[in-house]
Amino acid sequence: MSEQPNEGATAPGGVVIAADGLTKRYGKAYAVDNISFGIRRGEVFGLLGPNGAGKTTTILMMLGLTEISSGKVSVLGHDPARQPLAVKARVGYLPDSVGFYDQMTAVENLAYTAKLMGLDLAERTRRIADALLRVRLDDVAHKRVATFSRGMRQRLGLAEIIVKKAEIAILDEPTSGLDPQATLEFLDLIRELKAEGTTVLLSSHLLDQVQRICDRVALFKAGHIAMMGTVAELSVGVLGAGFVVEVEAQGTGIARRLATIPGVTKVETVAPERFRMTAERDVRPDAASAVVAVNGALLKLSVHEPSLEAIYARTFQTDPAGGGVRHAA
């Protein structure tokens, strides 16, 4: 295997993680089967898929924590199989349902990992205080972690990544099991990370939050990447359209008139006076004028943003192996 060029790691907007034909076999079963993707510096990338689709395995291969069966992956220009320390020094990882040493305080827990990172005492103390402040755990800094809620533990895990000043933050199911308030707070913290220029790799099966913060997503399905791109791109690819506009109007011939609007691919009559249009763009103004043109009475006009939920459901519906949809619900 040749040395990976380092320029991807330094160029702004360059590719920081590049996977090429990455494969993980357990015996004859493929946990991850020949996937390739590139993650650009500074973006929030979502790994999306049901449990057991290979998301965590992919992450562990990127960190050099599990052996790669074939293919290769380069993280910040390093090969995690051969230079795991170089990779792990610059990449932060928040595992699925992260654990801490319960008998130790938040600060002690962070101090232990900070020492493993090789930070000296002064640097450690400063960074830990900063990080705890940022994740709003400064008031419980000297409490034992045993008393922490799940949301606090997840934030403490994020504090560890902040202490590390990681260039890439890999978050595995960071918000599963959190209450809505804690989820919102956590998503805000992820946005702050992104604002600082950290590349964030997020694995999740919770669709709406992935949609809310991810720039691009990769849809995992039984070890493959079924699809990759922005939510809008996927939406066009899967649903045949990016936007769903609902029109409620009284009048005759509205459905026929709506269908003639350029960009509209389909018009359904949901109820006697309700129509659902799927379109490649936001066609609300055209719909409004169309209704007015046939002397109809426009009662309601609404647009549904392209929904990952729909994309996801469509992708996994067609295949009996896509039973993971249940998990996502």
Partner: peptide, 14 residues
């Protein structure tokens, strides 16, 4: 069981 292993091994140590 405490789920600390992967967090510790994600630090730059073998």
């Amino acid at each position: 069981n405490r789920r600390t292993l992967s967090r510790i091994l994600a630090q730059p140590i073998y």
